[in-house]
Design a protein around this nucleic acid. Sequence first.
DNA 1: GAGTGGTCTAGACCACTCC
DNA 2: GAGTGGTCTAGACCACTCA
Lengths: 247, 247
Amino acid sequence: MLQDAHISPTFSPLYRQIKSLILQGLESGEWRPGAAIPSESELAARFGVSQGTVRKAIDEMAAENLLVRRQGKGTYVASHNDDDPRSLFRFLRLVPENGKLEASQSVPLECWHAKAGQEASRTLGIKLGAPITIVRRLLNFVAKPVVIEEIYLPGETFAGLSLEILQEYQGSFYGLLESRFGVRMVRAEERLRAVAADRTSAVLLGVAEGSPLLSVERVSFTYGDRPVEWRRGLYSTAAHYYLNELS
Amino acid sequence: MLQDAHISPTFSPLYRQIKSLILQGLESGEWRPGAAIPSESELAARFGVSQGTVRKAIDEMAAENLLVRRQGKGTYVASHNDDDPRSLFRFLRLVPENGKLEASQSVPLECWHAKAGQEASRTLGIKLGAPITIVRRLLNFVAKPVVIEEIYLPGETFAGLSLEILQEYQGSFYGLLESRFGVRMVRAEERLRAVAADRTSAVLLGVAEGSPLLSVERVSFTYGDRPVEWRRGLYSTAAHYYLNELS
DNA sequence: GAGTGGTCTAGACCACTCC
DNA sequence: GAGTGGTCTAGACCACTCA
């Protein structure tokens, strides 16, 4: 039975308890990304609350991009593998200057294994010296390289990731992590700076050494605000810009 | 009387009609920023709908940062002049490297009047040659200059804006535009690029000429997605970074 | 036509704020 | 204690999807 909503002292409304119960279902893998969760009335019966209460819980989770409602069909676990093109660009804010929506193409360059240094262990919340996997890749827009990134992943969570897997996979990087390792990225923080291009980056991006690049450092989180990815990208903003909506 | 919600073909639910009615009250200035709007039950009576329907309309507007709910007190028109420090930093995403929340201090340098060129007229949605006001200013963090910006405003909307007014005013720039000109910024789009510092910017920011700076171009919108501000800033990201939350 | 989410209602009670 | 927003319920009906 559910805790009575009105006892307190740490008052938590019923719909939030329902929310965390649904969240448990997501974390435990009971409902996988892309799959449908039970209908509102079914959940209401299971949890012993009214449909309106379940509705409010789901509403909040839909607003947080954890669930996706589809009228007439059902409620689904949000996924990076769905057909909605927006979910592809939800984390990549780079837009071509001419406005056209170009498909970006990922070119994995390297993938190797290492031990977590101080910075990696701190940002990923793992032990110093714990295994990590590092991916180096290029992002092309219309066959021209625009982004070079290095991605740091906790080795235990993504054991078995290799260059071959990256090259084979059709779809987005987060789609791969989701379908192959069952880890779904829910939100991320990006820190942006302007930096000068070093020699190797300049060559890869086809710009002059020392020319200004946009440095984008990202930490991504899965359910429960657990950090599971740390990456640093260098963006060439000669023909593209980073678009951000403030509200 | 309200349009019946179930006639269609362009079906618009009742609560959205209520929403646009409340929006009218905001645009017309019936309820000014910082002031309280009528209670839910009062609005329900006025519009001839149930309280739940008004509630849903207000919920959406609160999610869009147009209104602010305060339990036990009432619902208020969102303002850049409230005491909540978050509303100050809602549009300035620059964060010091050391993590401490520093107060930024604005130093107006110049304020002059001109005629809108092609770019200004297009982004601000005004006629070519229409009057515009241009503000040039520095942003200091702990007495050190970190940002230099130029702000383009439609002259008719902000008639009378001068350097003296800018220097006198205590509070944020958007707070000034709001209390003095009755224009509230609701959302904005920012386009970021990495650029090399030109001579004058380098001097003002205390960096070497040619060193990388973050160029931030912003278009801000008031109610009804009407653009009313265009600005370009150059951010020194030596000791600060631009923080963005992706979700 | 059955099942899903979406809207709308009316009413009860709770939590918070202020007088 | 009166007034506000916040939660929860139960029930009706609508819009959409799919078979």
